[in-house]
Amino acid sequence: MVKLEVKIPQKREDLPITPLSVPMIGSMGKTGEWRTFKPVIDYSKCTRCLFCWIFCPEGCIERQEDDSPKIDYEYCKGCGICANECPTKAITMKREEED
């Protein structure tokens, strides 16, 4: 059986017979670099409904102690789903260069 050790292969002998990927943060690099539009939360409008947290397809929104959402910009690709789903329009998409 293939051993499920998470290691970066250096040589051909390090490879399993078929590629298997174990869930881990950042296996494809910092995908936040792909982003053109950045979601920005206006916490004064946020009702902590957590729609954004549920809908984020990348699991890049963290649910904090007080149920307020926090976006992980290192991995958020800027798809805009959170902004689209937010019932109070508390999330706006801003061009990266505007910051």
Partner: peptide, 17 residues
């Protein structure tokens, strides 16, 4: 005896990019 086998307790995906 499989060469590798899916395991719900130890999740991974096969044939990724």
């Amino acid at each position: 005896e499989p060469g590798w086998v899916l395991d719900v307790d130890n999740p991974f995906s096969h044939a990724p990019l």
